[in-house]
């Protein structure tokens, strides 16, 4: 493989690049450093970069998971720990469900030619138009009075799966179209049933699409606030809900709240670094390929 040749650019261009990177990442770095500071350091007037990093804020937030006694905690507030467990369960379960159901639907749409691609694209766009705030009233009403699943994790998972399905079906469709039909026919000749063809032939071939879809679904479920806030009770609150609850208090403990924010931000950040290519594919697939 030939070494890639890069154009030479003038120094001003690199200065601009550095400035852009600082602007993009700066606020995140600031959140990280604040979460590692004691409140004394946050309030002091001295330089913001010279301080003793401490994990105390994280210990306070995660106090019910600690296997040792942290000396500075005299009362353990379990709210955040519980919310973290809820968030993880809700995000993971709704991601898996959305992917399985969405994948099957996308496959049926492509291979059995129910509706044209245009119909699916259009309904995806239509669903994207619906702001979560619009779903707030009806979902609250239906979940509380008709299904009686308000305040449960299952209730929240159901909304998230429904919200994510149109996008997932649409993006997976664009990957399934590229799987050569001859491959499936060959498998069928060898005596595979439709389910075997789907799980053993098609699924392994669309792994990149699955990765993109998984990340987008997880992100929505992990970050969503409004509907979770309306549906959750004390025991099923997710992390975004607890964060908003704790900033409406009069006296904000910046160190701890930044630590909780950081914990909420870490999974998406990890995904970004591991799978940025899939994310960009997912993002551009809609607009660029049409």
């Amino acid at each position: 493989m030939a070494e890639k040749i890069y154009d030479k650019q003038n120094p001003a261009f690199y200065a601009l690049l550095v400035a852009l990177v600082v602007m993009a990442v700066g606020p995140i770095v600031m959140m990280l450093t604040t979460s590692l500071k004691l409140n004394v350091d946050i309030m002091s007037d001295s330089s913001s970069l010279l301080f003793m990093p401490t994990l105390r804020n994280y210990e306070t937030a995660l106090c019910d998971f600690l296997w040792y006694e942290a000396p500075h905690i005299d009362y353990c507030d379990k709210t955040f720990g519980r919310a973290l467990v809820n968030s993880l369960i809700i995000a993971l379960v709704s991601t898996v469900l959305t992917l399985v159901i969405g994948c099957m639907a996308a496959y049926a749409l492509v291979r059995f030619r129910f509706m044209g691609r245009d119909t699916v694209s259009l309904s995806t766009l239509a669903m994207r138009m619906v702001p979560p705030a619009v779903l707030l009233v009806p979902v609250f009403g239906i979940w509380t009075f008709q299904f009686q699943i308000d305040g449960t994790r299952a209730g929240i998972i159901l909304v998230y799966v429904a919200m994510n399905l149109p996008f997932v079906i649409w993006i997976l469709q664009s990957f399934i179209v590229q799987v050569p039909i001859q491959l499936e026919e060959a498998a069928r000749m060898d005596g595979a049933g439709p389910f075997q063809v789907f799980f053993l032939v098609v699924l392994p071939l669309i792994k990149p699409g699955l990765a993109a879809a998984a990340i987008f679904t997880f992100r929505v479920a992990w970050n969503e606030f409004l509907l979770a806030n309306a549906l959750a009770d004390r025991n099923s609150r997710t992390v975004p809900v607890t964060i908003v609850n704790s900033i409406t208090e009069f006296d904000i403990d910046w160190g701890v709240i930044m630590a909780t924010g950081m914990l909420l931000a870490i999974p998406p950040i990890i995904f970004t670094f591991v799978a940025s290519r899939q994310i960009i594919t997912g993002m551009t697939a809609g607009a660029v390929k049409g």
Partner: peptide
């Protein structure tokens, strides 16, 4: 590009938190 998509991936709640700080 990876660094640039970070702000979009992080929860809007957290973005609000950072800017409020």
């Amino acid at each position: 590009r990876t660094l640039f998509i970070l702000p979009m991936m992080i929860a809007p709640i957290v973005v609000g938190l950072m800017w409020r700080y």
